[in-house]
C-alpha cells in the first residue's frame, strides 16, 4: 500500500468525522429548544426560584458554556474540543463529564460487540463456505438454511422473542440486567458466571439475525470461486480437499467478506445500542437512553459523535487489514 492511498484514507476519515461533528453542532442550534432554559425551567417548577433569578442564572450559564459568543467562534472552539475528545459536562449527572459517562459504559458495549460480531462473522462465513461446497455432506450444508430465514429480523425483535420463549416461558435465562439483583461486582468466578449468563440472550439476539447475511454473501462468493481455473488445477494436482477448501476457496472469498464487515459496522453498532437497552445492560445504549429521558443533550451528542468516530476508525483499520489478506494490494 503506497503513501498516496494511506493519505487518501486518512483524509476520508477526517472528512467523515468533520461532517458528523458539523451535523451534530448545527442541528440542535437550528432547533427552537434551549437546553439550559429547559433545565432551569424544570428546577424552577420543583424548587423556589424567582423568575428574575432564573434569567440571571441562564445568562451566566450561557456565558459559561460560551453560548453568548458568535456562532463561528463557538464552532471553531467546538471542533477543537472534539479533537481533544472533550464533549463538555453531563447535565443530569453534573460533576461528571460526558467523556467520563462514555468511558464508564463503553467497556460493556465493546465486550458484547466484539464477541457477537466475531462469532456471527466466523459462524456465518464457515456455514456459507460449507453451504456452497459440493463435497460437504448434505446435513452439514442444510445447517445454514434456518439462519438464512432469520436474516433481516431486527435484533430488538429477536430479543423480545428470545425473552418470551427462553426467558419467560422456559425460565432458562434471566430477563434482563447485567447481573443478578443483590450481587456486588467482584472478581470471583461465581460473579463472572452470573455475568456471562446474563449476556447470553443479548448476544444471541445480535448473532441469530446476522449470521444469515454472512452465509448469503459467502455462499455467493463460494459458488463463483468453484468455477475458477485455479480450483480445478488444485484438484487435478491432487491436493487434499481440506487444503483446497482452506487455502484456495475460503481464503479467496474472505476479502469481500471483510469489505462486507466494514460496511456492516454501522448497523452492528446501532443494533447493539438498541439491544442493550432492551436487556438493561449498562452499556453505551443504556447511557444514551437515560440521557434521552433526562434531556441530557451534551451526553446525547457526545455519545453520537463518539460512536460515529469509533465506526469511522474501525472502517479505517479494516482498510489497513486488506493488504494482509490480499497480496495483490500489498505489492500494488
Amino acid at each position: 500500500m503506497n503513501t498516496k492511498i494511506i493519505v487518501q484514507r486518512l483524509a476520508f476519515f477526517a472528512l467523515v468525522v468533520w461532517a458528523a461533528s458539523t451535523i451534530v453542532f448545527f442541528v440542535p442550534r437550528l432547533s427552537p429548544r434551549n437546553a439550559i432554559r429547559e433545565r432551569f425551567g424544570e428546577l424552577a417548577r420543583t424548587g423556589g426560584f424567582s423568575p428574575g433569578d432564573i434569567e440571571k442564572l441562564i445568562a451566566s450559564m450561557q456565558q459559561q458554556f460560551g453560548l453568548d459568543k458568535p456562532i463561528w467562534e463557538q464552532y471553531w472552539q467546538y471542533l477543537g474540543n472534539i479533537l481533544r475528545m472533550d464533549f463538555g459536562y453531563s447535565l443530569s449527572r453534573y460533576p461528571m463529564t460526558v467523556t467520563e459517562v462514555i468511558m464508564q459504559s463503553v467497556p460493556w458495549t465493546i465486550g458484547l460487540l466484539l464477541v457477537t460480531t466475531v462469532l456471527s462473522f466466523v459462524i456465518g462465513t464457515l456455514l456459507g463456505a460449507v453451504a456452497a461446497w459440493p463435497k460437504a455432506p448434505a446435513w452439514l450444508r442444510s445447517i445454514a438454511t434456518p439462519f438464512i430465514l432469520l436474516t433481516g429480523v431486527p435484533p430488538i425483535i429477536m430479543g423480545i422473542l428470545l425473552l418470551f420463549f427462553v426467558g419467560f416461558r422456559m425460565k432458562l435465562l434471566p430477563l434482563g440486567g447485567a447481573y443478578s439483583v443483590g450481587l456486588v461486582p467482584n472478581w470471583s468466578w461465581a460473579f463472572f458466571a452470573d455475568l456471562m449468563v446474563h449476556q447470553i440472550l443479548p448476544a444471541l439476539s445480535l448473532i441469530l439475525g446476522s449470521v444469515g447475511t454472512w452465509v448469503l454473501s459467502m455462499r455467493g462468493m463460494g459458488i463463483t470461486i468453484q468455477g475458477e481455473d485455479y480450483v480445478n488445477f488444485a484438484e487435478h494436482k491432487g491436493l487434499s480437499p481440506g487444503r483446497i477448501f482452506r487455502d484456495y476457496y475460503v481464503r479467496n472469498a474472505l476479502l469481500p467478506q471483510v469489505t462486507g464487515l466494514a460496511l456492516a459496522i454501522g448497523t452492528v453498532v446501532t443494533s447493539a445500542v438498541v439491544v442493550e437497552q432492551l436487556f438493561g445492560l449498562p452499556g453505551i445504549g443504556t447511557a444514551l437512553n437515560l440521557a434521552i429521558r433526562a434531556n441530557d443533550f451534551p451526553v446525547i451528542y457526545g455519545i453520537v459523535l463518539f460512536i460515529t468516530i469509533a465506526i469511522a476508525l474501525l472502517m479505517l483499520l479494516l482498510e489497513f487489514i486488506y493488504p494482509v489478506l490480499d497480496p495483490r494490494i500489498r505489492t500494488n
Binding site: 461532517a19 451535523i23 454501522g266 460515529t308 465506526i311
Partner: peptide, 16 residues
C-alpha cells in the same frame, strides 16, 4: 459511513 440512526437521534432529540 455515518450511522443514519445516530444522526436521526440528534435530530429527534433536538425537537420538543
Amino acid at each position: 459511513p455515518v450511522p443514519v440512526l445516530l444522526i436521526q437521534v440528534v435530530v429527534a432529540g433536538s425537537l420538543d
